[in-house]
Structure formats: C-alpha cells, structure tokens
Amino acid sequence: MLEALVAGGAEGLVLVRDSAACEGRSLLRAFVSAAVQRAERVLVVLFEVPREQFEAGLSPSVKQRLLYRDGFTDPLAWMGPDPDLRAGDFGELLAGGLPPGGPLTLVLDSLSWLLLRLPPPHLCQALGALLGGPPNSARPPRLLALLHGDLHPPALLRALGALASTQLTLGGAPPATPGAPRLASVLSRPRRGGVSQKDESFTLLPDGSLCSLGVPPPAPEEGSPPPAAPTLGSSGDSGGRVPPLTFRLRLSAAERAARAAVTPPYQLSPPRRSTLLQTPGTIVCTPEPPEDEDPEDPDDDLDV
C-alpha cells in the first residue's frame, strides 16, 4: 500500500508523522522524487531546514525541477520589505501563488513549525481552502505535510488526523544504517469511502526511492509483547498495546521446542502401555441398593 501511495495513489492531505527518534524527511524525499518522475510540479515550502539540507540525497535531475518557497532564511522579514514567505499570511501567499497548470504536489516542511506559531484552526482553514476548490476546478493539489508527532498534544494530532486523507506514522526503532528497514503504520481514507489501516515495513534505496517490504516480519525482542499485539491493539493512537489475553497465538522458536518436548498425557510410552495391558484387571459389580419403598398410600391422609 505504501508503494501505491508514493506512486501517486495518495490524494488530498497526506500527513507524515515522525518523531525525534524516527525522522520522516527521507520519506518525504521519496514522495518528492516519485512525483518529479511522474512529471508533476512539486512546490516545496521550507520552514525548518535550509534548501541544501532538504536536497541532500536527491538526484540532480530531481533537484533542478523542484520549486521552492523559502521560509527558513528570513522568517520574520528582517532582511527586506518583500519577504518570500512569512507564517502569518501563509494561506494567502499559497492560495494566490500556486503555479498554474498540471497536477501539483505541495510539500510542507514542516507543518509543526506552522502549528507552533499560528492558531491551529486558522491554519486548518487555510489548508482546507487550499485543498477543496470549487467543483469545476482542476484537481486540487496533493499536500504532503511533515508533522512532528511528539511536539503536539494528542488532541491536536487526532483533530488533524480527521482532516487528513492519509496518515503515515513512522515508528519502530531508528534505523542504524541508511538502508535498514523501517516501520510505518498507514491509515488511508480514500474519497470513495472506507478506511484501511496497515502496518508496513519499508526501506529507502540509495537513489531516494522507496521499496516496500510488505507486512513487517515478527521480530520478537526480549520482553516485548508478542508480534500479534500491534495489529490487534492498534485501534487507538497508542500503537503497541497488549490485549489482555491469557494465551498467545505465536510462539518463539525456543517456546515451540519446549512445547514439542513435553509428552501429552494421553500418549503412552511403550513400556507403560505394556505394563498396563499385562496387569490382570477385575470388574467389580456393586448392585444398587434396593429402593426405599413406602408401602403406605399417600392419599390415605386425605379426607375425601
């Protein structure tokens, strides 16, 4: 599903939720390079990192076709009366300044920066106006927004999630090497209706593209909940909650070996069976005691 999303399946607002442990900018780059390869126009709005840092790892052909709005260099407009972008008039600048023609992918790096500086309802209204155009207009732009999940209260994250059509929550252990597999939980709500949620593992190739590894393999760590837990308990935002089960469906290799070693009580070993068969048995029959019969007629008491 993740590959399909990167390949253009995602529409509307796509939230990439990362945390300090697990950065999501590289996933953003994968989306960007895929969009450029589809010959879409990509407008990157930078607030958090300079252009050079965002471009790191992108191929030169992709780099030269990206459009930029720089909100990083001069966020408070100290360097001149004509700033490229300021937080306050974000909505107007974008709504008025979208380059015309063709499908457009708008990348926000990051939404968190804006959320910390603007009242969230204003920001959401600006985003909503950007996404939902009049019915006869061309396709609304795809909006990719990076969101640092650990910077905002959970209520705000839930409310933003309700606006997004796709949410990618990065999780799992931080990748040790650049090519190491990573975990993402994908929640997709297509316009057609329906909701699908899936945990997927992916890896980023050296050229910046994404390679999906499918459903994450069960990787039991010491003392961690069984791998069935994340899929069962992923109803809320608190991902890996363990359901209160008294049994486990999946066993580790050691546990499975231990289970195989135990002899079931109904299996008799040959020596024990032979001793059981050879001992002469007797059948004892104890007849039931005769019933305690009352010869008296119960109706005798009645005065009929």
Binding site: P121, C124, A155, L160, A162
Partner: peptide, 16 residues
C-alpha cells in the same frame, strides 16, 4: 465544530 469551522474545541482542552 471541527477545526475547519475555525473552532478550537477539537484541538485543545481549554478552547479560547
């Protein structure tokens, strides 16, 4: 009452 209506009852516990 959602955020798109410009209301912050969804996003914060103590709305303005």
């Amino acid at each position: 009452g959602s955020m798109l209506w410009g209301d912050d009852i969804c996003s914060s516990d103590t709305p303005e």
